[in-house]
Every structure is written in structure tokens, then in C-alpha cells.
Amino acid sequence: MTAGQAELLLDIPKVEDGAALWRIARDSKTLDLNSSYSYLLWCRDFAGTSVVARDEQGEPVGFITGYIRPERPQTLLVWQVAVDSEYRGRGLAGSMLDGLAQRVGITHGLRTIETTITPGNTASERLFTSFAERHGAPCAREVLFGVEDFPDGAAHDPEVLYRIGPLTSPAA
């Protein structure tokens, strides 16, 4: 973490963090908000491939949810990244992504990170392209899901797959 986050702790999410993660996602006003139930399940079933940033009181102020792709066991798919508005602009998302990649690299021999980003989400585009640069890894992009793939059609932007890798070391 940078000097601005010295007081923050990167941790593995717990079920009791689910409600806070849901609130942070909701308040981001940019993420597709999942049900509160899904955040509880995520904190239970995918805690090992996710990260939460905690303030001095231990309260969640940011998170990344992810999972290992079953057919690609060295690939981490990053599902959502969110930082509480009070903590934005401090490099916290990058610190969480670096820390998560390192931890998952140790446990799963991580070689690739994938995520999807809707066009125009410049904060996410910068987060993942700068991660690729820091780790000396190529970043390929392709449309994974077009507008026509979504049941609500034009109500959803396309999702562009960012594939970062191969990472140069298992610990990223």
C-alpha cells in the first residue's frame, strides 16, 4: 500500500462483511448491483480469491471479488472492484489488486487475470492496464458479451474482456 493507505488493512472477507460490500457496491453508482444475498455468499464461498480493505476500526472501505475459472485453474476472474467514495483517489484499488494477485499467486500459481469492463469506464481501464504495466504482462482486449447477449438488450453496454498475462511469476 502507498503511504496514503498505511492505516488500511488488506484482508480476506468474512460473511459479516457481505452487507458492507453490498453498500459499497450500491453507493459506487457504477457497478451492476447484485443482490445482498450474493455478497454474503461471495464472502463465504469465494473469500480466498477476494480481498477487502479495512479502515482503522476494521470496517470495509473497499473490496475486490474474484474467482478461479474452473476450466483455467491459474486464471483469476475479477468480478467487481469498489472503493468507498471517501477513500478514492489514493491508489487503494491498485493496492488491493496487487495484494490479491500476490495472495492468489501463492495459493493457485496465478498466470492470468481476467476482468470485463464496459466501454467508457476509464477508472477500471486505468486500473487494469496499469496493473499489466507494473507486472510486465501483456493486456489483450476483446468483446466478451455484446449488447445482443444480454436479455435486457440495449439497457446493458457490452462487456470487454481484459486478459492480462502471462504474469511473470506465480506470485504476480
Rank of each mutant, 00 (worst) to 15 (best):
R54H: 09
I24V: 04
D98Q: 14
V78H: 06
W79D: 07
D157Q: 10
T112C: 07
A101V: 04
M1H: 02
A132I: 02
E16R: 13
L10T: 11
V83L: 03
A132E: 05
D32T: 14
G62W: 08
Y67M: 08
T129W: 00
W42D: 02
P138E: 08
P151E: 00
P138V: 04
R44K: 15
Q80P: 13
L9R: 11
A47T: 05
V81T: 14
G62C: 01
L9D: 06
D55F: 00
G153L: 04
L167A: 04
D149S: 02
W79L: 10
E142C: 13
V78E: 05
P70N: 11
E142Q: 15
T2D: 14
K14I: 15
M96F: 05
F145K: 06
R72L: 01
L41T: 04
T118F: 05
I113H: 03
G18R: 10
L77I: 06
A132K: 12
G99R: 05
Y37H: 14
L41S: 00
D45K: 09
L161C: 08
D55M: 07
R90I: 07
K14T: 15
L92M: 12
G89I: 14
R88F: 08
R141V: 15
T168Q: 11
M1R: 13
I68Y: 07
V78T: 03
Q102Y: 03
G62H: 00
R23Y: 02
G94M: 13
G66Q: 04
L100T: 01
N121Y: 10
T30W: 09
R90C: 08
E159I: 09
C139M: 11
V147F: 04
A53L: 01
L77M: 14
Q57D: 08
E159W: 06
L40M: 01
T116C: 07
A93F: 13
I117T: 12
A137Q: 03
T122P: 04
Q102R: 01
A140W: 12
L33M: 15
P73Y: 05
Y87F: 14
R90W: 03
R103K: 14
N34V: 10
T116L: 13
L10M: 10
T2Y: 01
A172N: 09
G62K: 02
V147M: 13
T112L: 01
R54W: 06
L76Y: 06
P70I: 08
S124I: 15
T118P: 03
S124A: 15
I106A: 01
L127D: 05
W22I: 01
V15C: 03
A82W: 05
R126A: 14
S50N: 00
R103W: 07
F150R: 05
A154W: 00
S38D: 07
R134Y: 10
P70G: 12
L97H: 05
E86P: 09
G48K: 10
Q102C: 02
P166L: 03
R26T: 15
P151N: 00
I113Y: 07
T107D: 13
S50E: 00
L77H: 13
G99C: 12
R88A: 06
D11Y: 01
V83F: 02
G89W: 11
E114Q: 04
Y162H: 08
R26D: 15
R163S: 09
